[in-house]
Write a protein that binds this DNA or RNA. Structure first.
Lengths: 109, 109
DNA sequence: TTGACATGACACCAAATGGTGTCTTACAAT
DNA sequence: ATTGTAAGACACCATTTGGTGTCATGTCAA
């Protein structure tokens, strides 16, 4: 299942380190409003809000309004696409593969 | 181990779908020169070359000159960083976690 | 009801991104 | 020796990105 109606590529969403930190914070604390997330970063509220929008477009966060604040919550399931992708290449950095690379290096035409 | 002298963030390098296709092609064929990679894409040689440079900066490809061609080879090991990162969040999309999300959704304040 | 707070929605800007085309150099082949 | 191919190095350009500041709206609290 997971979310397929994502406007934005998940790989794109996690490319930015600020967004990865946001994911981490939301993983730790379950649900957080913008004004509690902002002071964790050295940038303005608007910038953090934009990053959260991008995460939302990728389906990585949900948001819900509670009073005057908007609380953000992690939805990690789109990350399964990343895990599947990277899992495929796992076999290419096994110890055997590193050995093969060394051999090719030494050969050097 | 793996490569730590990378100029560019691995997450950044794999954010682009063209570069992910390049990684796939190099995983399939072990070693390929630029002029064989280029026709796989709907863009010019220069653009493909730039993408390969970015992959190189992230340590994801090696290149070696053979005659007048430059052959590119995959080095998947920096992808372990991605696998480690995404692996941490695996527990957040287990079936139990999805159930919890549903409950929070229904509650809805 | 007045004032402070949280956020959304813009407009704006500099720098990075992802393409293009051209020129030059190196190498291969005839 | 000449010609064609492979690729590096640029200059160039449009669009996107990642930040800023400001203004408007909605909500809480005194």
């Amino acid at each position: 299942m997971s979310d397929n109606n994502q406007l934005r590529d998940v790989f794109d969403a996690i490319a930015d380190s600020t967004r990865r930190r946001l994911i981490r914070l939301l993983a730790e604390t379950e649900e957080l409003p913008l004004h509690e997330l902002t002071p964790q970063f050295e940038m303005g509220r608007t910038a953090v809000s934009k990053h959260l929008t991008i995460l939302k477009e990728a389906g990585l966060v949900y948001d819900r309004k509670v009073g005057r604040e908007t609380r953000y919550r992690l939805n990690a399931s789109p990350l399964s696409e990343v895990q599947d992708w990277v899992g495929f290449y796992n076999k290419f950095w096994s110890t055997n593969m590193l050995r093969l690379n060394q051999l090719l290096e030494e050969e050097e035409e």
